[in-house]
C-alpha cells in the first residue's frame, strides 16, 4: 500500500471511530427519552396534575402535591443560592489573586464534586436535627448547596470575560468600584450568568437523594415550608419501588413530567438569553 493510501485509510478509520462513539453516546439518551415518553405520556391525564395520591390499593389519583412541592423546593433553593452564589462569583472575579479567593474557588470545586446524598446528610444535620422535623426548608437548603458551586463558578468565569474597557469607561465617569460592577460589568455578563443559574436549577430539580431525609415526603397537599413536602423525584422513587402497577404507571408519568420541566427550563433559558443578548452583542 502506498504511503498516501495508508494515510487516507488511517484518517478514514479515525472518522469512523469518532462517528461510532457519538452513536454509542447518543443511543442510551435516545432510549431513555423514548422509554420515558412511551410509558409516561400514556399515563398522563388531567387527574395527574390536579388530584392527590390515592391511598394504597385504590387506583387513580395524581401528583398535584409533588408537582407544587418540586416547584417550591427549587424556589427555596434559588432564593438561597442565587444571591450568595452571584455575590461570591463577583468577589472571586474582583479579587482573583487573593489567598482567600483561592480557598473559596477550591472549596467551590470540591463542593461541586461532593455526592448529593452527602449534601443531603449535611442539610439534615444543619436544618432537620435542631428542630427535629423534616421540612421543605431543609430540602431547599440541600438543593441550594448543590446549586451554589455551579453559580459561583459560572458567575466568576463570565464576569472575567467582560472586556476591561467597560470597567475603565465606568470608572472614568466617576463610578465607584461597586457601582461599575453592578451597573456595567454584571449586566454585560448577565445573559451567561442567567444560563448558568437555569442550568443549575434544572440540575437540582431532578435530584432525589438530598431530599430523602430533608424534605422527606408528604402524602397531603402542603405549601407550609416548615413541614415535610412531597417532590416529583421522591414520589417517583417511592412509586417505582412499590408493588402496584398503577403506581408504576404514575411513576412513569412523574418521570416524563420531570424531563419535560427540565426541557422547558432549558428552552426558556435559551430564549431569555437570546433576548438579553440582543442589547449586549458587540
Amino acid at each position: 500500500m502506498s504511503n498516501a493510501a495508508r494515510r487516507k485509510m488511517i484518517s478514514r478509520l479515525a472518522e469512523i471511530f469518532c462517528a461510532f462513539s457519538v452513536v454509542v453516546a447518543l443511543v442510551p439518551l435516545a432510549l431513555i427519552l423514548f422509554y420515558v415518553v412511551k410509558e409516561g405520556f400514556g399515563a398522563l391525564n388531567w387527574a395527574f396534575f390536579t388530584h392527590m395520591p390515592k391511598p394504597v390499593g385504590e387506583t387513580g389519583g395524581g401528583m398535584a402535591n409533588a408537582i407544587v412541592g418540586t416547584l417550591i423546593l427549587v424556589a427555596i433553593a434559588a432564593l438561597f443560592a442565587v444571591p450568595i452564589g452571584c455575590m461570591s462569583g463577583i468577589y472571586l472575579s474582583e479579587y482573583p489573586g487573593s489567598r482567600f479567593a483561592d480557598v473559596v474557588r477550591f472549596s467551590a470545586d470540591v463542593l461541586n464534586g461532593v455526592p448529593s446524598i452527602v449534601i443531603g446528610i449535611f442539610a439534615y444535620g444543619l436544618v432537620v436535627l435542631p428542630v427535629k422535623r423534616f421540612s421543605a426548608i431543609a430540602g431547599g437548603v440541600a438543593l441550594g448547596f448543590l446549586m451554589l458551586p455551579i453559580i459561583v463558578r459560572t458567575t466568576e468565569e463570565l464576569l472575567r470575560l467582560v472586556p476591561g474597557g467597560l470597567r475603565e469607561g465606568a470608572l472614568a465617569l466617576g463610578a465607584t468600584r461597586s457601582r461599575a460592577v453592578f451597573s456595567v460589568i454584571l449586566p454585560a455578563a448577565l445573559p451567561g450568568i442567567l444560563t448558568g443559574i437555569l442550568v443549575a436549577l434544572a440540575r437540582v430539580a431532578g435530584e432525589t437523594a438530598p431530599l430523602l431525609f430533608t424534605a422527606f415526603n408528604n402524602t397531603f397537599f402542603s405549601t407550609n415550608v416548615a413541614q415535610p413536602m412531597a417532590s416529583l423525584t421522591v414520589q417517583v422513587y417511592t412509586y417505582a419501588n412499590s408493588a402496584f402497577d398503577d403506581w408504576h404507571r404514575q411513576a412513569w408519568a412523574g418521570a416524563f413530567l420531570l424531563v419535560m420541566m427540565i426541557l422547558t427550563l432549558s428552552i426558556v433559558a435559551r430564549l431569555a438569553v437570546r433576548r438579553l443578548e440582543r442589547m449586549n452583542r458587540p
Binding site: 467597560l166 475603565e168 469607561g169 465617569l173 463610578a175 456595567v184 449586566p187 442589547m279 458587540p282
Partner: peptide, 21 residues
Amino acid sequence: VVELRRRVGMVFQKSNPFPKS
C-alpha cells in the same frame, strides 16, 4: 478619586460603549 474623575473625563483608544442603549 471618584470626584477627580468626574472633573477629568477620558476617551479611550478602543471605543467602549456600555451594553446599554
